[in-house]
Design a protein around this nucleic acid. Structure first.
Length: 408
DNA sequence: AATCCACAGGAAGATTAGGATA
DNA sequence: TATCCTAATCTTCCTGTGGATT
């Protein structure tokens, strides 16, 4: 230890960092994936879910369940928690209950769902990523499932994704599978962010899937405060948080549909900023900068994943805004856009389409586009940028020149 | 009051990409 | 593997319109 200390003193780089008390004790406790042993303000939902699934332990088939709630309301956490408890208890009392968790953002096709189910039950890669006919995969899953008497609880997280991306056919098959199974029983838990996603569902699937429904309401500000306090005790060294920090994080997150993830992110990023700046306490100012940073990162990410035509439209708007002779309107943007795509060269879209792209950028919150009338001089959209441009401009120049170098 | 700009934004058809199906 | 389907993207053509100007 002494030699290490000497080395550091010699280099001097880490000196100041080591002198201050570290802010984090255990950063893991702030991650989304961290499962605390106690879930504040979700007792009611936990109990409902456990009560329904308890049927599995009595050897009956639990009702299928649909769980609704916006992002960061604890749906996934509660479900995973209950699922784990169910397996644990099942093992203890000798009633086999298997739970399979699946995130439909990743596992998003009919084939992949069945392959994942089969492979989890076999405990190894029996079904390859691709290649088999879908009904053969279904048969493989069916066979392994029915080998022994057991209840299989399949959890579809973000179930709305799979319905939108492919179809509800898998769900239909799974809801009917119990009539053919001799030993095993399958029940389904669907988790959805989208409250209206049942509109897209086949009514036959819906009636079977929605036997029970559990709603997770957004957290109130003081509930968020409790959650943050619970995590903060684990995550931080005592006394590094100003007392205004947690209430402020909670208030910001409550304003955005009571998202606990957002609240935790704010707290974590604020503390990281404090650490980076060499501060020994996290203050209100850090929370405010954290809010800005998170927002910027979000925008950067959105811009990065934009289709290239939209990027070019956005770049045109930025150039015009910088030039700064008054309000930017659709016609100007289109002329600039056409000039740029001609030079690129890229396909040139019609003004009608570009107008829609501008509206989409508006929806994403990157720009503000308001329809105004300039009287004799027509009706148009007046466009202003909704976010600071420097980082976006750099990003766009990098990405657009990657595909061609004639633009700049 | 009438005109008319510069688009907005709806409808419908064409084109295209990627997944489903045989 | 080929081709069939579907949903998303894009075009063409269109009607509608707030208000400064005449």
């Amino acid at each position: 230890m002494a030699t290490l200390q000497q080395t550091l003193d010699g280099v001097g780089l880490f000196e100041s960092i080591l002198k201050t008390t570290p802010i984090f004790k255990n950063k893991e406790a702030l991650r989304h994936s961290y499962t605390p042993s106690d879930l504040p303000h979700r007792g009611e939902q936990t109990n409902r879910l456990a009560t329904i699934l308890a049927a599995a332990l009595r050897g009956e088939t639990p009702s299928n369940i649909l769980i609704y709630g916006k992002t960061g309301t604890g749906k996934t956490l509660v479900t995973k928690f209950v699922a784990k408890e169910l397996e644990k208890t099942g093992e203890k009392i000798g009633v086999p209950a298997t739970t399979i968790y699946m995130n439909c953002e990743v596992v998003d096709t009919h084939y992949r769902v069945l392959a994942q189910l089969a492979n989890t039950l076999y405990g190894q890669e029996v079904v390859p990523f691709t290649g088999w006919p879908t009904d053969q995969v279904f048969q493989a899953f069916f066979d392994i499932a029915d080998k022994k008497k057991q209840v299989i609880v399949v959890i579809f997280d973000e179930i709305d994704k799979i319905v939108k991306k492919s179809s509800d056919e898998v769900l239909y098959n799974l809801t009917r599978i119990n009539t053919d199974l001799k030993n095993a029983r399958v029940s389904i838990v669907g988790i959805s962010n989208d409250l209206r996603f049942t509109d897209f569902l086949d009514p036959r699937v819906l009636s079977s899937l929605g036997q029970e429904e559990i709603v997770f309401p957004p957290y109130e500000a003081d509930q968020l405060k409790d959650i943050l306090t619970q995590r903060a005790i684990l995550a931080f060294t005592d006394g590094v948080l100003d007392e205004t920090v947690i209430p402020l994080c909670a208030a910001f997150a409550a304003r955005e549909h009571g998202d606990a993830r957002r609240a935790l992110d704010l707290l974590r990023v604020a503390a990281e900023l404090a650490e980076l700046g060499g501060a020994d306490k996290v203050t209100e100012a850090h929370v405010r900068s954290a809010k800005e940073k998170i927002e910027q990162d979000r925008v950067i990410e959105v811009v990065r994943t934009l289709p290239s035509q939209s990027k070019l439209v956005l770049y045109s708007i930025i150039l015009l805004e910088e030039r700064g002779n008054g309000g930017v309107i659709t016609g100007d943007v289109y002329n600039m856009y056409r000039e740029l795509s001609r030079r690129a060269p890229m396909d040139i879209l019609t003004q009608r389409r570009v107008s829609d792209l501008i509206s989409e950028l508006d929806m994403l919150g990157i720009i503000n586009a308001a329809v105004i009338s300039k009287g004799r001089y027509g009706r148009t959209k007046e466009i202003t940028l909704g976010v600071p441009i420097t980082r976006i401009k750099e990003l766009l120049e990098k990405e657009l020149s990657f595909s061609n170098s004639n633009l700049f």
